[in-house]
């Protein structure tokens, strides 16, 4: 079978392959309050898929429904073609997850915790446990009690229990909570590694836009229980696209005259150009004896786009 990531690379199309998760008009009401309002969404396989929204927008509720912890009020969620409501065991067997904080039995060792989850399946060998422990870099502390672990180590142990059975779908709820920058970077790296090596689809929720941008191939944006946008993020196309670039120069007027373009914003020169253009403009300015103190391409971040879309203010 052709690998999933190849297919995506070739076609760069939304609807390649069967979606690993299908939300069909999902509604969740708690009491009279509607938490999720008619969520319909397909998650394509083999990606890191971001589920983005402000606190209280229904991300965790959605994840609880995906993992069968909460019942749906209406609609259906299918994982790998199996309904989580009607065929729970077939659906969940393909899923590994952390829901909120990865709470483990603190009076057991990390290893004993993993053994607990391994015993609940028939497809996890001792060798596999050791492999995952090494992959997560836990081998030195795995036989210590979890009560002695730092938050970062608990997160890693949480990921370890989630990937133990090589799930097709890995669900992580706010996985960067409590991680230091180093930990966040490592998490990003091993999620990439997982999608590449094992073809795992990663469904990751967060309210931290900048992180999602670095981590995800696509994001769905949810606000107040409603899906407001789904988009692909493409980090590679930067070289071609025109970007606003800020040049911090001494003589702005002269520079504008020289370049026959650009504008002044906040006392700095702003030019729209691509990668090549930046180098060229810099060379011309320097040749003309104009001192350049700084060059900064203005990437329009997901955060900007998000704030635009949600009208700002709502983001926490």
């Amino acid at each position: 079978m052709e690998s999933i990531s190849d297919k995506i690379a070739q076609t760069n199309d939304d609807n390649v392959g069967q979606p690993i998760v299908r939300f069909k008009n999902v509604v969740k009401k708690i009491g009279r309050k509607t938490i999720i309002e008619g969520l319909t969404l397909d998650v394509p396989p083999g990606q890191v898929f971001g589920f983005l929204g402000p606190n209280g927008s229904g991300k965790t509720t959605t994840i609880r429904m995906m993992t069968g912890l909460m019942k749906l009020t209406a609609g259906d969620i299918a994982v790998g073609g199996h309904s989580i409501a009607r065929n729970f065991e077939q659906a969940i067997t393909q899923v590994g997850a952390i829901v909120e904080n990865p709470e483990m039995y603190s009076y057991l060792s990390g290893y004993a915790n993993l053994r607990q989850y391994a015993r609940m399946r028939s497809d996890v060998s001792k060798e596999r446990i050791d492999e995952v422990v090494r992959f997560m870099g836990l081998q030195h502390r795995i036989h210590d009690k979890v009560s002695t672990y730092s938050l970062g180590m608990r997160q890693r142990l949480g990921v370890a229990q989630a990937i133990l059975h090589r799930p097709k779908l890995l669900i992580l709820d706010e996985p960067t909570n409590g991680l230091d920058p180093q930990g966040i970077r490592e998490l990003r790296d091993y999620l990439r590694e997982l999608t590449r090596r094992e073809g795992t689809t990663v469904f990751v929720s967060s309210h931290l836009l900048s992180e999602m941008e670095l981590m995800c191939d696509s994001v769905a944006i949810i606000q107040a229980g409603k899906l407001i946008d789904v988009r692909q993020l493409n980090a590679e196309s930067d070289a071609e696209t025109l970007l606003e670039t800020i040049f911090d120069v001494e003589q702005i007027e002269e520079a504008i005259a020289l370049l026959e373009g650009g504008e002044i914003r906040d006392g700095r020169l702003v030019v729209r150009t691509n990668r090549e253009g930046i180098a060229e403009i810099n060379a011309r300015l320097v040749q003309a004896g104009i001192a350049v103190y700084g060059i900064r391409p203005q990437k329009r971040s997901l955060e900007d786009q998000f704030l635009e879309m949600t009208g700002g203010g709502q983001i926490v």
Partner: peptide, 14 residues
């Protein structure tokens, strides 16, 4: 109370 119920229930067991 420990929150471990979540990781316990998301296994292929009713």
């Amino acid at each position: 109370s420990r929150g471990t119920i979540k990781l316990l229930l998301i296994r292929p067991w009713s």
